[in-house]
Amino acid sequence: MLHLTPTFLVLLVLLVSWYQELTGSIIYISLGLFYILLFWGKFDLITYLLISGPLFLIGILYYISWKQNRITHKT
């Protein structure tokens, strides 16, 4: 059950992100950075890209969505 903790954490962040896109964006990008800082030097570069890359991508997409919604609601 312990090995599922990161999965549950990402699902919890998904739930928060569903309603607050900016918060989700910040958390996803922070999780990617946290992984890189925590395990730096232990793996090859491709490992960091495969694990934290999707977190960065999701964070960037949530940020773009938040920005688009903000622009749409202003006009």
Rank of each mutant, 00 (worst) to 15 (best):
L2T: 08
H3S: 12
H3M: 06
L4E: 08
T5R: 09
T5W: 09
T5F: 11
P6C: 13
P6H: 09
F8R: 07
F8E: 09
F8I: 13
L9N: 06
V10K: 05
L11R: 02
L12Q: 13
L12Y: 09
V13Q: 04
V13L: 09
V13K: 00
V13G: 01
L15Q: 13
W18V: 01
Y19D: 14
Q20P: 15
E21H: 15
E21T: 02
L22D: 10
L22Y: 05
G24K: 07
G24Q: 02
G24L: 06
S25D: 01
S25M: 04
S25F: 03
S25R: 02
I27Q: 00
I29V: 14
I29Q: 14
L31K: 00
F34R: 06
F34Q: 04
L38Q: 14
L38P: 00
F39N: 05
W40F: 07
W40V: 01
W40T: 01
K42N: 13
D44P: 00
D44G: 09
L45H: 12
I46S: 15
T47H: 13
Y48L: 03
Y48G: 04
Y48T: 13
Y48P: 03
Y48N: 12
L49Y: 02
L49G: 08
L50H: 08
L50T: 07
I51Y: 13
S52K: 08
S52I: 02
P54M: 07
P54C: 11
F56N: 06
F56V: 03
L57V: 04
L57T: 13
I58L: 15
I64L: 15
I64S: 13
S65V: 02
W66M: 00
W66G: 00
K67R: 15
K67H: 10
K67N: 14
Q68E: 07
Q68D: 01
N69Y: 02
H73Q: 08
